[in-house]
Design a binder for these strands. Sequence first.
DNA 1: TTGACTTATATGTCTAGACATATAATCGTA
DNA 2: TACGATTATATGTCTAGACATATAAGTCAA
Lengths: 241, 241
Amino acid sequence: MSLVTDADKPTLYKRIRADIEKRILTGEWPPGHRIPFEHELVARYGCSRMTVNKALSELAQADLIERRRRAGSFVRRPQHQSAVLKIADIRAEITALGRSYGYELIGRKLRAATAADRDRLGVKKAGKVVAITCRHSADKVPFAVEDRLIDLSSVPDAAAADFSREPPGSWLLHHVPWTEAEHTISAIVADDRTAEALDIAVGAPCLVIDRYTWRSARTITAVRLLYPGDSHRLVARFKGG
Amino acid sequence: MSLVTDADKPTLYKRIRADIEKRILTGEWPPGHRIPFEHELVARYGCSRMTVNKALSELAQADLIERRRRAGSFVRRPQHQSAVLKIADIRAEITALGRSYGYELIGRKLRAATAADRDRLGVKKAGKVVAITCRHSADKVPFAVEDRLIDLSSVPDAAAADFSREPPGSWLLHHVPWTEAEHTISAIVADDRTAEALDIAVGAPCLVIDRYTWRSARTITAVRLLYPGDSHRLVARFKGG
DNA sequence: TTGACTTATATGTCTAGACATATAATCGTA
DNA sequence: TACGATTATATGTCTAGACATATAAGTCAA
């Protein structure tokens, strides 16, 4: 029940960090404002430079401030435009809900990249690709259909991989470290094929996630996930600051 | 053109961090795995403890590992990827696209909270609320419709605010600092009312964003944004490693 | 005025210590 | 066997220095 008694005072660097955070949050130090230099904070708090440095480094890692050599540290533009969107691995997502996970490979083709494939992967010339279509289900009910393209010139091992039991997402996660990715979220209505795969009505809303994954400027994979729009929800939670 | 020549080697603590990160991302060190103790890393890299501590602290701040006193540091379970989802202020979003922003208030009501209102705001008892419906447009074309509820017990000033010119989102942004928010993304098909407001066909797909904003456990506002599903795209980009 | 050079300075990284603290593991006792 | 006290240890925090490095700002010449 206790109303944050705050009996134990936090450590010094955390207090420094909290002090600065509060000033930023309340707008006392607006975006662009230069916060005191390390040596000034050292004087104010009567501690060593490493202590204030730790506080400022964490604020920088949290994207609350930006640090520039010789110039100082500055309050960054508010992040109210960005949220941390947790997009779990589908299997983890389903098991986390306490439901049984089911996976079914619908199709797998190894082929020379077509023009459409190259376009989708965002590469000019590609050798071979693997195209996979599969379905994820929760408690035997279709949860999402996946339509994926893997660039074999980036992930040669994928040619030998059999995706009949392991979903390509999990396989890739364990075989290829990604460095960058982009998600695009949109909505469509189900066409015949989608409706059948998801066991929903034609014309029902679907949430679409297109994900592209790179590894240092090399495209690894492009995947489109279709979820029944009324059943699935993407939750993005974030803390302001 | 240069193929990542990597001429300048990163600093030591960054190398340590990257080494560990790579092992985690490749699955070599799966969730739950205990990573080497600080003193072991000190021995391996031939540096001081503060250097490996900085690397591990950053990994902990990034939620990649969990540190437990006396026990060690462990790879964290949630293998889910987190992406920075940019959900811009709609005006900023539209002007960023180089299009002219238009705003139109459709309705504004001040009323005692109904049961539905309380449910939507997630509060047990609420005094009054403001319910606002408005439309955002880009180049005179409907871009999104907004349906918002503001809890006046949290934001009393909103009772006096006239939202005929300024969108409630901007107003709140400038008057109330939030501390936490949650977005839920889903898809629906347009009903008659929505179709008319967005000037799209009935049955066309719509992307829905439900956003709840709190300020230290106090609900501030609940808003539902409806975008034409085929025209709007939410882009979430994130860097791995 | 412009461009090249120099300098001052704030941050970036690192060290070799120190003491604090939570807790896993051990030991001893009921 | 179960439980309580003790101990060992890995992390948490902090210091008072050091040198590196990017760069804003000032200086000077063309």
